[in-house]
Design a protein around this nucleic acid. Structure first.
Lengths: 238, 238
DNA sequence: CGACGCTTTGATCCTCGTCAAATGGTGTGG
DNA sequence: CCACACCATTTGACGAGGATCAAAGCGTCG
C-alpha cells in the first residue's frame, strides 16, 4: 500500500516494523484517474479497496434533481474501506482533477488481517474516523448556516491535509469548483458564491484557480466555530 | 449481552453456536434509565459499551444555540461501539422514555475478540452500518426538504424496529416529542409540526400519545422517496 | 385548581433557492 | 489572430421554504 497511507497509520496508531513490512507487501495496482472519472457507482459490488495517493476523491448521491457530495477525500484516505464488509455501494465514488490510487483486493486485506490481527483495529479505527466525520456533517448541515458550513469545510480540509503534509504555507491545491463546494454544503451554487465572497472580504479565504489559502486560520476557525476534535488528530505532524 | 442484540447479529451475519455462547457469556450489567437521562457526555472517555435492550436512545450535539440530534437508536443497537477504538465522545448519549441497557466493559469485548476473531468483523460491520446511516442523513439534510426528511425518519425507524420485532400492526411505541423530531431533521419545531400535519392529512402517519402508526407504509415510502438499501437489512426478520 | 410541557395556530421576517443574464478566462478551429 | 463556444464565476431580481416570535389550546399531574 502507498507510503502516504502507511505514514498516516504510523503516526495515528504506531506500527511495528513487522506490521509496516506487511503493509508494504500488500499486493496492489496503481491506477491513474482523470478529472471526474468514476471509480464506483451506487449499486456496484466492490471487491477491491482504493487508497488515495494523490489528488482528491468525493462520494456523492443523486437525490431528486440534486447532487449531494457526502464527503471529500484526501491522500491517505481509503474511501471505500467499508466495502470489505458492506460490499454494495450506496453512493458513487469519483475523482476530481488528476488523481492516483492504489487498488488492493479485499482478499489481500483480509489475509493481511489474518496474519496480523493487530492491524484489524487500526483499519477499523479508520472507518470509525470516517464515521465521525459524517456525524459531524450531520450536525453542520442540520444546525449551521451557510457561512459556518463553508467555513467548516475549509477548516476541516486544512487539518486533514496538514496531517498528510499537503498543507504548506497555509495553502493547498484544491481542484474543485464552487458548485462542488455547494454540493458538499447543501447549498445552491449562487448562495455558495456569495458566501465565499463574504469569507474573502473578511480576509479568511483566498481562492484563485486551483489554490486555496487560509491567511488567518485561527480567525477562520473561530468564525466558523470549528474544533478539530472529531478528526482524532492528536498532533500536527510534519 | 442481551438477546435482542444477539438475535440481530444472528440474523444479520449468522453465528455459530460457539460464538453465540461466547456472546452470552460476556460479563455485563443491566442498567435502567429514566427519561432524558444522560449516559455519556461530549468529552467523556468511555470504558464501556452500551447495548440498548428496550426503549430509545439518541446522540446529540449542541451547536450554537441549537440542539442537533445526530441519530436515534432502537433496541439491539450499540450506539457507543466506536468508543472501543475512539474512546473520547464527540457527542452526548441520552435516553428517551424508560430504557434498559446492557453495559459491558471494553476489556470484556476486546478479550472476546481475541478468543473469537470471527466476531470482530461482525461488530466492525455494525459500526459500518451505523456510518451508512449517518451518510444517508448527510444526504437527507443536505438535499431534501422538510416533508421528505420527516418522512424518511419514520420510514427508517419502521425498518429498523421491524428488524428487532418492535414494529407490529404498522405501529410502534415512540416516546419522543415533535421537538425531538425537529432536532433530528434540522428543522424548527413549528415547521415540524406543520410538516407532520401534512403527513397526517395525507393519511401517511398517525401519531397519538406515544404511539406511531404508518397506515400506508408503501405510500409513505414512495412519498418520502425512501429506499431501505442503506440499512443493509436483507430480509424482514421476525 | 393551577402549573407545566407539548402541540397548534397566526403573523412576520429572512435566509437561501431559483431564474436569468452578464462577465471573464480558456481552448479550439477557421 | 480573431471568432466562437464553453465553463465557472459573478451579479441582480424575485420568490419560497422555513425560522422566529407570540399566544392560544390542551392534557396531565400534583
Amino acid at each position: 500500500m502507498h507510503e502516504r497511507l502507511i505514514a498516516r497509520l504510523q503516526s495515528v496508531a504506531g506500527l511495528t516494523s513487522d506490521e509496516r513490512a506487511a503493509l508494504n507487501s500488500v499486493p496492489h495496482k496503481v491506477r491513474t484517474l482523470g478529472d471526474r472519472e468514476s471509480i464506483l457507482q451506487e449499486g456496484d459490488k466492490a471487491s477491491n479497496c482504493v487508497a488515495l495517493m494523490s489528488g482528491f476523491l468525493y462520494r456523492q448521491r443523486i437525490i431528486g434533481d440534486r447532487r449531494q457530495i457526502l464527503s471529500l477525500h484526501v491522500p491517505g484516505d481509503i474511501p471505500d474501506l467499508m466495502t470489505l464488509y458492506l460490499p454494495t455501494m450506496d453512493h458513487d465514488l469519483i475523482s476530481v482533477g488528476q488523481s492516483t490510487v492504489a487498488v488492493a483486493p479485499h482478499s489481500a486485506l483480509k489475509s493481511l488481517f489474518e496474519k496480523h490481527p493487530s492491524l484489524v483495529h487500526i483499519f477499523w479505527r479508520e472507518t470509525l474516523i470516517d464515521a465521525a466525520i459524517f456525524r459531524h456533517w450531520v450536525g453542520n448541515l442540520g444546525a449551521m448556516d451557510a457561512f459556518h458550513r463553508v467555513g467548516q469545510l475549509f477548516c476541516e480540509l486544512a487539518v486533514r491535509l496538514e496531517f498528510v503534509g499537503l498543507f504548506e504555507k497555509n495553502s493547498f491545491s484544491f481542484p474543485l469548483t464552487q458548485y462542488d463546494v455547494a454540493s458538499v454544503c447543501g447549498l445552491s451554487k449562487v448562495h455558495t458564491n456569495r458566501t465565499i465572497q463574504v469569507l474573502r472580504k473578511q480576509r479568511l479565504l483566498i481562492w484563485r484557480d486551483d489554490m486555496v489559502e487560509l491567511p488567518n486560520r485561527e480567525e477562520l476557525e473561530a468564525a466558523a466555530e470549528f474544533s478539530a476534535d472529531y478528526l482524532q488528530r492528536k498532533a500536527k505532524s510534519v
